[in-house]
Simulated assay, not measured.
Amino acid sequence: MPCRHLDTAWSGEQVASQLKEFPHWAVEFSAHSAQPICLWRTYAFANFEGVKMAVHALMHLADDEDHHPDVHFGYNRLTVKWSTHSAGGVSDNDWACAAKLDDALRHVG
């Protein structure tokens, strides 16, 4: 079932607390304030085949959730940035999608 929560941005304190449960994720902050603007992670793979499988899984997840991240990938790396633009930062949807993506990519080489 897709994430469908109110688009409310989390505070810096809320994000810092939640990051304890997401040790591989980091947060990017606004250059002008302490407001978190996105949740991001870089995944590493053995080769481009792993990246292709991961991008494919990510595309399905994003469409299923109707929540689409910024993505950058190369030979053996995939960086994903989740942000809820309508909320102006990190929201419930971003955390839910991060957890679902971690789960989906757990066994991708």
Rank of each mutant, 00 (worst) to 15 (best):
R4D: 15
T8I: 06
T8V: 10
W10E: 02
S11G: 04
Q14C: 05
A16N: 03
S17W: 03
K20E: 11
E21R: 09
E21L: 15
F22W: 14
F22H: 06
P23R: 05
W25M: 04
A26Q: 13
A26F: 13
A26H: 11
V27C: 01
V27D: 01
V27H: 03
E28Y: 03
E28G: 06
F29A: 05
F29K: 08
A31V: 15
A31R: 08
H32E: 08
A34W: 00
A34Y: 02
A34T: 03
Q35E: 06
I37F: 00
C38K: 03
L39C: 05
L39F: 08
W40R: 11
W40T: 14
T42Q: 14
Y43F: 15
Y43E: 03
F45I: 05
A46C: 14
N47G: 11
E49M: 13
E49F: 15
K52N: 10
M53L: 13
M53F: 15
M53P: 02
A54D: 01
A54E: 03
A57L: 14
L58I: 09
M59W: 15
M59L: 10
M59F: 11
H60W: 09
D63K: 12
D64Y: 07
E65F: 14
H67C: 08
H68N: 10
P69Q: 09
D70R: 11
D70L: 07
V71E: 04
